[in-house]
């Protein structure tokens, strides 16, 4: 069963990764990357990294991919027939979500505290709690540096994408 789940996720990840490179339409590439992110999140769930799976879905599939789609549609807004057959994309997104849900439920029943709990966070804690305890104790300084990186990136993106840079103000 574990091999079957891994084989499914790995196969879809490999195929969609190649499709991202091979397809000519950037919108299709972005949608293939979306499918790949969902399946990578499923792989994280099978590796008992549930918090990372959720972060992967929220940050990658929710924020980064939407940004890509914005830019793709902003730059070349051609009127092709590129919105056909969206149900296949929807199916490829829904199937890993369903599998992740099943694996989560099954894992919750069979192994209550499988890993990362005995030595690092005390018994009976889950993955998100263990990651939080590690992140805010051992890796506190890199966490602060990450916030600085995000601030710099935000300012840089605003400055770079502003329309009249150096026109009237600076």
């Amino acid at each position: 069963m574990a091999q079957l789940v891994f084989g499914y996720f790995a196969g879809v990840i490999a195929v969609t990764a190649m499709l991202v490179v091979a397809l000519r339409n950037p919108v299709y590439s972005v949608l293939c990357l979306l499918i790949m992110f969902f399946h990578v999140a499923g792989l994280y769930v099978t590796l008992h990294a549930e918090f990372l799976a959720a972060v992967q879905l929220i940050v990658y599939a929710g924020a980064i991919l939407v940004l890509y789609l914005f830019v793709v549609m902003l730059l070349n807004a051609k009127q092709d027939d590129r919105y056909h057959r969206q149900w296949r994309v929807a199916g490829f997104v829904c199937v890993p979500l369903l599998l992740e849900l099943l694996v989560l439920f099954a894992g919750g029943k069979m192994e209550p505290s499988p890993l990362f709990s005995a030595d690092q966070a005390g018994p009976g804690t889950d993955n998100a709690r263990a990651i939080g305890l590690t992140l805010f104790s051992t890796y506190l300084f890199p966490f602060e540096v990450a916030s600085l990186i995000l601030l710099v990136a935000m300012i840089g993106a605003i400055v770079l994408a502003k329309r009249d840079i150096g026109g009237s103000g600076a």
Partner: peptide, 11 residues
């Protein structure tokens, strides 16, 4: 870092 890279790269 990936989020920062995407924001700056797309800009």
């Amino acid at each position: 870092v990936a989020a920062a890279e995407v924001a700056v790269g797309l800009a």
